[in-house]
Structures are given as structure tokens and as C-alpha cells.
Nucleic acid binder design. Structure first.
Lengths: 231, 231
DNA sequence: CGCACTTTGTGCATGGCTTCACAAAGGTAC
DNA sequence: GTACCTTTGTGAAGCCATGCACAAAGTGCG
């Protein structure tokens, strides 16, 4: 009802901008904790580790929430970004797969802190089912449909072994879920309209290794050449 | 020694391509396990979930390793990508911070599988130091410099609370580390020449929430309008 | 040996993101 | 009330990545 302040705005937030909004939100919360009421795009950009022009353009996609000559009201901007990201409501999250990673995620405080609530836990291993974690019993994967329906789960985190991930994804999608955060190292195949985000630990390490190797080559390879390359 | 087959190639791999190479590598390993010897760009692209033209362009940055009319030799391509990513050597990784997440990472098999070896574990908590995980004693953070130097660590994973992360980063950088994988929800400030990659669980959830909210708005808000927008 | 078929590697056009630079807008001091 | 100062919001330019479409190159069959 209260939505659609401007149609262009509604459809027009670039993905790159959306991906940075959580970053700004975190920086703003840091400022708020330190009792800062107002912040310029320049200062906020530094806190978030981005270019200030980019920050302003990103924020301009949400609306015109700054005051020229002054900056942005920290609390107000926190509210606006939270609203845009959908964090003013809270989201029930289910975690599937309670190995090391799944348990770490279940215990991770950062989830709860901003509008996310772990509402269900699933595993296929009978010796894990029934166990209590973060004040909640682990359900068997067979009850997935009933439990996520009953508890209003709308986001599912997959932390199973790679071999089970696609199967789990198929089931949660059949149960109506359209947002998945996948920690399993596989490419999930999903129908249109389902959003999957992937977090892949070893991919990140491999990218670091690439750059590390390049740095090492520079030094041991030929210092002269590295110098020549700077020119 | 055996490096620099072509100077342009050496400097010229776009970041976007580097970020996808691990993906291709994983897809190729899957094919290799199923005994497949040769693959076309089309099939590999499907397995990796990307466009085949993009895949070919990515691979062309490494060199000309395909055979027209046939495709790519799976084993050979695995080797070439591994070499380019620096996975033919193995990398000693240290994990700092052994809370839930740090322990999960230490136990995570995916690290070891591809050229990465957990070589040191650190924590600041005296009750954790000395504990054995994955066949290794946890060292105190005070010994960081000596231990990482002694064990040839070149990549550090930070899994500490947010409040400690910058301090840890400063110390490992002072000790000569130039590659950091950061799980703490803070923007690390580092000097030039140091690579930081960030993995942020709650950021990913927030991005999903944004899209989920948008989908929900579409349905409940005004189905007519959604139709109109498609035009 | 030549022809038809397959698949790579890439020139080119398109689109999106980033960055610069500045006009517009608001605040403040006198 | 005016003049000056600060900072936002954005037009415009440049850059990088994506995807199409095709020529070049290799295979295999007759």
C-alpha cells in the first residue's frame, strides 16, 4: 500500500547497488553506535570502503534522502535502506544440513541481528534429528514441506554436502521457496523466478591464490621487469 | 622459469574471468570423475552455468587450449586452469579465530581438496589454545608472527569477532602476509598490495531479502501492474 | 583428396557500471 | 536579507564485461 513512491525507483535499482546497500547499512550502524547523527557522503564512503560518487549515486536510486550542505541523517538513512532491503519485517530462515558449517551458521549471531530468524533446522541423519540447537529441535528432511510451510519460512540456506544440494533445492522450490543461499560447491539448476546466491569458500581461496602467485612471480621472476611494467 | 609464454596474457586476465575459473575447474573435475575425456564449450558452459561464448572468451585469455571441431581435453584444461590459478603448488593457510565458524572452516574438507592445507590455527582465548583440531594444536595469537613464518603460511583466514578483525589484519600484514580471506563483518583497511576477499553471510541474506520482498510486492501489490510492466 | 560438418577463437556492438565534474540547493553568519 | 560555504544529486564520458555472429581451423567420411 505505502509502496511505489516513484515507479522508476521501484524497478530501477541496479544489482550492483543492491549488493552494496548492506555494506552502507553496516557502516551506518557503526556510526550510530558511536552517537553520530549526521554524515557526509565522503565520510560514509570512507567507512564503507567505496568511492563517494558511487555512494551518492547508489543512494540516489532510493530517493533523495540527503540535505545539501549537511549530509545524511544517520538514523533516517538506516531506516530507508532497511526498508528498501526489506529488513523492517523479519524473515524466517531454515538451514538444511547440520554438519560443521550448518551448525556454525545456526549459531552465528549475525543472522539474528538484522531481521533474520532461524526458524527451522533440517538434517537427513537420524542421529542428528531431534538434537537441540539454538533452542530448537532438528527436524528430519522428510518433514521439510510441512515444517517450512507451518513456520512461514521464506529463505532456505543449503549447507549439505554437494551431492545432496540439488535434491534439496528441488524440494524446497517445490514447496514454494524462491530464495536460496547455497553453501554447497555445486551449480544449482533452478527455474526462473528463483534466486540463488552462492557462497563458496574454496573459490575465494583460489582467487586469492591467483593473485598471490602473481605477486610472487613479480618478485622472484624479474624485479627489472616489474619496474618496467610500472611505466 | 617456465612462465611468461606471452606477456599480454600474463597481465591481461580480467578479474571477472579469474572469478569464474574456479567454477570451470570444478565443473571439469566433475566431468573427469565421470570419465569424460573431451568436452565442448557448450557442454562445459552448461555444467558451469554460464554462457558458452563467455566461457570461450574466458578460456581464450589463458591461451588457445581447445581443438576446433572437437572441444577441450578435460585433463589438459584442468591442468592449465590449475596452473594459472596457482594450484599446482600447495598453499599453507592459517585460520585465526576458532569460534563456531573457525572450527567449521578448519574441518571443512573443501579446503584441503584443492591445493590448500590448513597449516596453523590461532585463537586469543587461553582455554582454546592447546586444543587439538584436525591433528593440530591451536596456537596463541601472540605467537602469530613466529608460527606463520616458520610454517610458510601465505594466506590467512580471519574468522574472529568483528571487533578483533582489523587488529589481526594489521598484525598478519606486518608479518608479511598479502592475502586475506575475511569472514568478519567489517571493512578491513589495508595497504596497497594486500588482497582482501570478504565473505559475508548476512550481506548475502540481505540481498536475498531484497529480491524476495520485491517478488512479494509484485504478487500482493497489483497483479495488473506487474503485467503492464512486462510490456 | 575433397567436401561437409563441427567447434573454437574473436571482432564488434550493446549495455551497465564507475568516475568525474559541476550546477542546484540548502545552511550559516553577519 | 544577502553572500558565502558546503555538500548533494546527476549529466556526460569512459571503461569493462557480455553476447552475437562468423571466419578460421580441424575432423572424418566417401
Amino acid at each position: 500500500m505505502t509502496r511505489r513512491p516513484s515507479q522508476a525507483r521501484e524497478r530501477g535499482i541496479p544489482d550492483a547497488t543492491v549488493a552494496r546497500l548492506p555494506l552502507y547499512l553496516r557502516a551506518l550502524n557503526g556510526l550510530a553506535e558511536r552517537g553520530i547523527a549526521t554524515v557526509s557522503s565522503e565520510d560514509l564512503a570512507v567507512a564503507a570502503g567505496v568511492n563517494s560518487a558511487k555512494l551518492r549515486k547508489d543512494l540516489s536510486h532510493l530517493g533523495s534522502y540527503g540535505t545539501r550542505g549537511v549530509g545524511y541523517d544517520v538514523q533516517y538513512l538506516i531506516y530507508q535502506i532497511s526498508r528498501e532491503l526489506g529488513l523492517t519485517q523479519d524473515w524466517a530462515v531454515a538451514i538444511v544440513g547440520l554438519g560443521n558449517l550448518g551448525r556454525a551458521l545456526a549459531n552465528y549471531g549475525g543472522f539474528v541481528s538484522r531481521g533474520f530468524r532461524v526458524a527451522a533446522l533440517f538434517d537427513a541423519d537420524a542421529s542428528v534429528v531431534g538434537e537441540h540447537l539454538v533452542g530448537m529441535a532438528v527436524d528430519h528432511i522428510d518433514d521439510l514441506e510441512a515444517v517450512i510451510g507451518g513456520r512461514g519460512v521464506s529463505i532456505v540456506v543449503i549447507a549439505t554436502p554437494a551431492s545432496a544440494a540439488q535434491q534439496v533445492a528441488d524440494r524446497v522450490i517445490a514447496a514454494g521457496i524462491t530464495s536460496i543461499l547455497n553453501f554447497a560447491p555445486v551449480v544449482l539448476t533452478v527455474p526462473d523466478g528463483v534466486d540463488v546466491r552462492k557462497v563458496d569458500l574454496s573459490t575465494e581461496l583460489q582467487i586469492l591464490a591467483f593473485h598471490e602467485q602473481r605477486k610472487a612471480d613479480r618478485e622472484t621472476g624479474s624485479p627489472m621487469m616489474a619496474e618496467a611494467m610500472d611505466a
